[in-house]
Design a protein around this nucleic acid. Structure first.
Ligand SMILES: [Zn+2]
Ligand SMILES: [Zn+2]
Ligand SMILES: [Zn+2]
Ligand SMILES: [Zn+2]
Lengths: 132, 132
DNA sequence: CTACATAATGTTATATTATAACAAATTTAA
DNA sequence: TTAAATTTGTTATAATATAACATTATGTAG
């Protein structure tokens, strides 16, 4: 909502919109909601999204092709993300759990590949949906 | 390659194609490659993919919108998947690691949400690309 | 066996997500 | 300054996925 440093006008407009939303926002939903602010076409939105992802301000929820603000002060560069996704109401929450991130950041598979980045998505029922 | 039980003709054709491929296959690549076998339109491919995913024969690699055969005899229902993805050559490998899956299957976040399913994608450089 | 209901498959059309290609404007740095 | 480089705007199109309905196959009651 407030002016962030080093962001262009379009990036700020897109970030503001994602921040205001309670749920993940899709690119074309962003587009239609920012047309009144002078963003006219998909590439303008996708370029802003790309930059915001790169600097860790937002994340893409891959299974939903939607975007959320980062809730984690530590993942400035967006290289270690985890989400909890309700299969009923589609609520998405970023998981902030240092044990989990520590475990995954240091994970080594048997091929010796060293990981720079991971994205984890958990699916289940949230409290509200469980009790229905 | 060999006839699987309980699969329809289209499901078998699509599965065969994905099994033959060394790399993740995209839906429209599948479509163009199975036209000679009588599959003509996207819904036929997507329905087959949906079923194959449900029974755990294949997985979707979300970050690539592509499909791979399951390499893990244990994830019959596809509810616990992990992949390693090379950012250079795009090679994708299913990670089969019982410690990892045990850890993630029993993971609890602070909201008390109980997870039924997860998908984890690691990114980095594979051995071959690292040494270039 | 029919005749009807149900489910599965085929087909056409369209919706949704994302990027290519180029033009115009802005910024940078000789 | 002015030419190059980068960023932004714009048009067009590519790539991914599903809706809607027609057709065919399968199952079930009479
Ligand atoms: Zn984050
Ligand atoms: Zn819910
Ligand atoms: Zn698997
Ligand atoms: Zn590689």
């Amino acid at each position: 909502m407030h002016k962030e440093n080093n962001l262009t006008k379009n990036q700020q407009i897109v970030l503001d919109l994602i921040e205001k939303s309670k749920e993940p926002v899709k690119a074309y939903s962003i587009l239609s909601n920012v047309k009144k602010r002078g963003i006219n076409a998909p590439p303008q939105v996708y370029r802003a999204l790309e930059k915001l992802i790169k600097i860790g301000k937002i994340h893409k929820v891959e299974s939903k092709n939607a975007f959320v603000v980062c809730k984690n002060t530590n993942c400035e560069v967006s290289n270690a993300t985890a989400f909890s996704i309700c299969q009923a109401c589609e609520k998405v929450t970023e998981i902030i759990n240092s044990k989990l991130s520590k475990y995954l950041k240091s994970f080594q598979d048997n091929t010796g590949m060293k990981y720079k980045k991971y994205n984890l998505e958990f699916f289940g029922l949230c409290q509200k949906c469980k009790s229905k």
